[in-house]
């Protein structure tokens, strides 16, 4: 019997290294949207803590750590990245599999903020946008999720179908920043 072969969104597009910065595809594992039902936020928070060891993130924040993270994903929603959600959470929230819906990349290195300043209309400087901060915003006309994962590293997500444009736009900005020295 034939077998289906999995392909990641940025397959064949990455990695790239430009001017001391690197752009790599992340493979975060499962990604599930968790949207608490009316009045369920507190109970859900406890259940999430119990099942996955992290709090339900407040707006503009991410909880957990690399490999198992909950990223605030907009109004009434978090994205659990890493583990598949415990079935018990379904009592308190709508759970929706989005593992294949987003291209996830990591931009890292000196100048990463300058690169994003060319694409994202949000203040991402370290004194304002700290580790564990996240933003739902746009990246050059694409709906995006941007999370700081380290002093010079960001996790960036756009819809899977736009992976090529994401890589193109990021690389173009990286080249321009690198050229300025």
């Amino acid at each position: 019997m034939a077998e289906l072969i999995a392909k990641s969104p940025c397959d064949g597009l990455l990695p790239a290294t430009i001017g001391g910065m690197s752009l790599t595809e992340e493979h975060p594992g499962a990604m599930w949207a968790i949207a608490p039902f009316n009045g369920q936020l507190k109970v859900l928070g406890k259940a999430l803590e119990a099942a996955h060891g992290m709090a339900f993130p407040a707006p503009n924040r991410a909880t957990g750590k690399a490999g198992s993270r909950a990223v605030w994903f907009g109004r009434d929603m978090a994205l659990l990245m890493g583990p598949a959600p415990d079935a018990g959470l379904a009592k308190h929230a709508a759970l929706t599999d989005q593992s294949d819906a987003w291209a996830v990349v990591r931009l890292e290195g000196q100048g990463a903020e300058d690169v994003l300043a060319r694409l994202v209309p949000v203040d991402l400087r370290p004194q304002v946008f700290k580790r564990g901060h996240t933003a739902r915003t746009e990246l050059k006309h694409m709906m995006a999720s941007v999370t700081r994962t380290g002093p010079q590293s960001f996790q960036i997500m756009v819809f899977r179908s736009m992976a090529k444009t994401l890589v193109h736009d990021l690389k173009t900005a990286m080249e321009a920043v690198a050229a300025r020295g």
Binding site: P59, N60, R75, P121, V122, A135, R136, T137, E138
Partner: peptide, 11 residues
């Protein structure tokens, strides 16, 4: 009220 101050282009 959720995201903070943002540029008009996001709206």
């Amino acid at each position: 009220p959720l995201c903070g101050e943002r540029d008009r282009r996001e709206f």
